[in-house]
């Protein structure tokens, strides 16, 4: 047993380096650039949305005020029409119920002086 046992050793000069890294060429902007770009885009978009919301509120106010200015005119017209229709309906009712003693045409069914639109309209 004189011989020294031969241990397994690397080849002379050593093994070549193991290529475990991905050798993919670098393309496109860096992560930092992407992240900051997207953040900027979102910020600007949100800002514009906010400005748009404020603007929409003003547009809504403008619309509401235009209607407020027109309400008296439209209401006056509608009132005249309602008055005309109610007067005509009362006249018809009086004609139909002329034989009933003590009947008041167009009398409110409510025990109050407050105006209530007629529930039933007498149609010829």
């Amino acid at each position: 047993m004189s011989a020294v046992p031969q241990q397994e050793l690397p080849r002379p000069g050593g093994f070549p380096e193991i290529r475990y890294k991905r050798y993919v060429p670098k393309i496109g902007p860096s992560g930092l650039a992407l992240f900051s770009g997207i953040t900027l885009m979102c910020t600007l978009g949100l800002y514009r949305t906010g400005q748009g919301n404020l603007e929409r509120r003003e547009l809504e106010r403008e619309k509401v005020w235009s209607r407020i200015h027109l309400i008296p005119l439209l209401q006056a017209e509608a009132d005249r029409d309602t008055y005309r229709r109610e007067a005509a309906a009362n006249e018809r009712e009086a004609e139909v119920m002329k034989n009933v003693k003590g009947w008041k045409a167009g009398e409110s069914v409510y025990n109050s002086k407050r105006y209530t639109p007629q529930t039933f309209v007498v149609v010829p």
Binding site: A76, E77, D79, R80, T82, Y83, E86, Y115
Partner: peptide, 18 residues
């Protein structure tokens, strides 16, 4: 109109508006 909601109540004012 605020005073009374009856259509007959504000005919004069309504005419002026129109």
């Amino acid at each position: 109109k605020d005073e009374n909601n009856d259509p007959a109540h504000c005919l004069k004012e309504g005419r002026k508006v129109t």
